[in-house]
Design a protein around this nucleic acid. Sequence first.
DNA 1: CTCTTGACGCACA
DNA 2: GTGTGCGCCAAGA
Length: 103
Amino acid sequence: MKRGFFAKVYDVVRRIPLGKVATYGQIARIVGEPRAARQVGWALHVNPEPFVVPCHRVVNREGRLSGAFAFGGADAQRYLLMNEGVQFVADDVVDLQKHLWEE
DNA sequence: CTCTTGACGCACA
DNA sequence: GTGTGCGCCAAGA
């Protein structure tokens, strides 16, 4: 499999611990492309293995859910996150202060 | 090849 | 706090 920017994104997203969430910008920075936050989103958009890469733990800088979800919808994402013990400050917004993943 | 769109982020009014 | 514009990189038309 190709080891490009996407692979790096998948690798980072894959190691997000359960009950934690990460932002696109955070991931982009970890992979060495702090400007590529959009490509992180694109990488997950073309996510080849949605059950291997926990996209549901990836949110934007506000902690808001993506809306376009490869698993089955924002509702599924919300359910998965709650199942992992992630608290929400709003219907589609997670509490970054408590669950923001720090490498 | 160029232009537009996009699961984003930040600056500014 | 909200709305608008720009920058960044990649893909699609």
